[in-house]
Structures are given as structure tokens and as C-alpha cells.
Simulated scan of single mutants.
Amino acid sequence: MTSCWAIWERRDKAIFEDGERRADLVVRRVRDLVNEMEGRGSLEEVVGVRGVAEDGGGWRRPGDGVVKVNVDAAIMEGVGVGLGAVCRNDRGEVEWCGVEQGSVAMVPEEAEAAAILHGLKEARRINNRKVILEGDCSNVIHDLQLKRKGRSSIFLIYTDIYALCNSFDFASFNWSRRSSNKVAHELPHLRPWTIGSRRWLASIPLDISDVVRADFDNISI
């Protein structure tokens, strides 16, 4: 399945973006996807080429006066897509969290981009002004850091993200390891599955309280 996804993705990019139909790019993408699923990050992140990988510590605090919004997505076969976001301040305290669940069909990277857009929308709704968006999908984060543009469907989501960033005094994108994104990873799977958006202010769903507590105990400065 991973190989099929990588082949389809390379075909899509070849048609709509760079025109390169190279087998080595497919092989490299398969390796990156497997590394991500195993929590190791892509090859570039493992060796530090992109400069966005963190050390093996837990969730890291943002700077003073900045909030960090961790996001993640989940594709539930035969059900739909879940998007999760959790916002914590510079003391590591949860300011809000939210989940959006729907029956729309998306490929994995589109869902990850949609989760970032969801997180930004919630941050604007709460009136956070300085925001770091953090997720564990390296390719999407890297695209957004470079402000990449293109004609395939994921770039429509990117365009909305770029436009929404203008609503903040400061907004940036950061990659994190799966181990540092545990709370956001749990939110999209929240039961019962409810079509629409749910949010919690200064609180968390009871189902993930243990994850939040364990994550807080491992916060890195």
C-alpha cells in the first residue's frame, strides 16, 4: 500500500509540477513514509539536512508569549477523516483543543495539510496572535516552510493556509517526531465519531487525559 501511494504521488507531481518520472524518487518516498510510520522521520530529517528535526526529548515549549498548536490527521477506512489540534502556551498548559471529523475522502498528505488548516482556524477563532504550527508529516511541513505552490489538489489547501497566516502577528511551521505529537495524534480518533467540529477551552476530553498528563511530564525546555 505504501509503495502504491508513493507511485501515485510521484505520477501526480510529474503531471502537475516537475515532470520528473524517476524511480529513485519513488523509492526514496517509500523509505520516508516507512520511517514516518515508525516514528523516525524522513531520511533528510534523520541526518539533519532540513534542519527541522528535534532531539529525542518530549514536546518542546515555544518562546514567551507564543502558543504551539500541534496537529495530526487520521484516515479511518470506510468512515472518513479526522483532524485534531491542541494548543499549549509557553508553560506547557493546554489552552484549547479541538477535533473535526467528516466523511470526506482524502489521501494522507491532504489530510495532514487539512489538519494544519483546521489548527490555524481554531487559533484564529480563539484569537491567538503568535502561533507555531507543529505536525509530524515532514513533507507537508517542508512544503509550507518553503511556501511551495503548484496545481495539484493539496496546493489548494496550502493556498488557504498561506492566506490564513496573514491573520496572525506571527505564524510558522515546525516538524516534530511522532513521539512529540502524541496528544494531537489521539484527537482525530476520538469516539464517538461525530460529523462536525468539537472544541474544548482550557480543558481536554476525558478519553485522552492520561496521554496529556504523560506528555506534560516529558516537556522539554
Score class of each variant (00 low, 15 high):
Tyr158Phe: 11
Ala171Met: 02
Arg178Ile: 12
Glu100Ser: 06
Arg198Trp: 12
Phe173Cys: 06
Leu187Glu: 11
Arg198Gln: 15
Pro192Leu: 06
Glu110Lys: 09
Cys97Ser: 07
Arg198Ala: 14
Lys121Leu: 15
Arg148Val: 01
Ala184His: 05
Pro108Phe: 04
Trp200Glu: 05
Asn127Thr: 02
Arg151Asn: 07
Ile157Asn: 06
Glu122Val: 01
Tyr162Phe: 10
Ile157Leu: 15
Arg191Thr: 14
Lys182Leu: 11
Glu109Met: 09
His185Arg: 07
Val104His: 02
Ile132Asn: 01
Val104Met: 05
Tyr162Ile: 10
Lys121Val: 05
Leu187Pro: 07
His118Val: 14
Pro188Met: 06
Ile154Ala: 00
Ser153Cys: 02
Ile154Asp: 09
Ile161Ala: 03
His189Lys: 12
Gly135Leu: 00
Glu100Lys: 11
Ala113Cys: 07
Leu190Ile: 15
Glu112Gly: 01
Gly102Asp: 04
Arg199Gln: 06
Arg125His: 13
Ala114Asn: 14
Ser197Ile: 06
Lys149Asp: 01
Val140Glu: 01
Ala184Phe: 02
Leu190Thr: 03
Ser179Asp: 10
Phe168Asn: 07
Ser153Lys: 13
Asn166Leu: 01
Ala113Trp: 05
Glu122Asp: 03
Ser103Cys: 10
Pro188Thr: 03
Asp160Glu: 15
Glu134His: 05
Val104Glu: 13
Gly150Leu: 03
His118Ile: 13
Val183Asp: 11
Ala115Gln: 13
Arg151Lys: 13
Val140Met: 00
Arg198Lys: 14
Arg191Trp: 13
Asn139Ala: 09
Val107Ala: 12
Tyr162Trp: 08
Ile161Glu: 02
Leu164Lys: 09
Leu187Gln: 13
Gly119Tyr: 00
Gln145Gly: 04
Glu110Gln: 10
Pro188Leu: 06
Ala123Lys: 06
His118Ser: 15
Ala111Asn: 08
Val99His: 07
Ala184Tyr: 01
Phe170Gln: 06
Val99Ala: 11
Arg199Asn: 03
Met106Lys: 12
Leu190Phe: 14
Ala184Trp: 02
Leu133Tyr: 01
His189Cys: 08
Ser176Arg: 08
Val104Asn: 09
Phe170Ala: 14
Tyr162Lys: 05
Arg151Cys: 03
Ser138Asp: 03
Tyr158Glu: 00
Arg178Asp: 04
Val131Lys: 00
Tyr158Leu: 00
Ala105Gly: 00
Val183His: 11
Arg151Leu: 07
Ser197Tyr: 11
Arg125Asn: 12
Asn174Trp: 09
Asn174Ser: 15
Leu164Met: 07
Leu164Ala: 04
Ser172Asp: 10
Asp169Thr: 05
Arg129Met: 11
Leu146Arg: 13
Asn128Met: 11
Phe155Cys: 09
Glu109Arg: 12
Ser153Phe: 05
Asn128Thr: 01
Arg124Met: 02
Ile161Pro: 07
Thr159Val: 09
Leu164Phe: 06
Ala184Asn: 10
Gly135Val: 03
Ala163Pro: 00
Glu134Ser: 12
Leu187Lys: 10
Leu146Glu: 07
Trp200Ala: 14
Phe168Gly: 10
Ala123His: 07
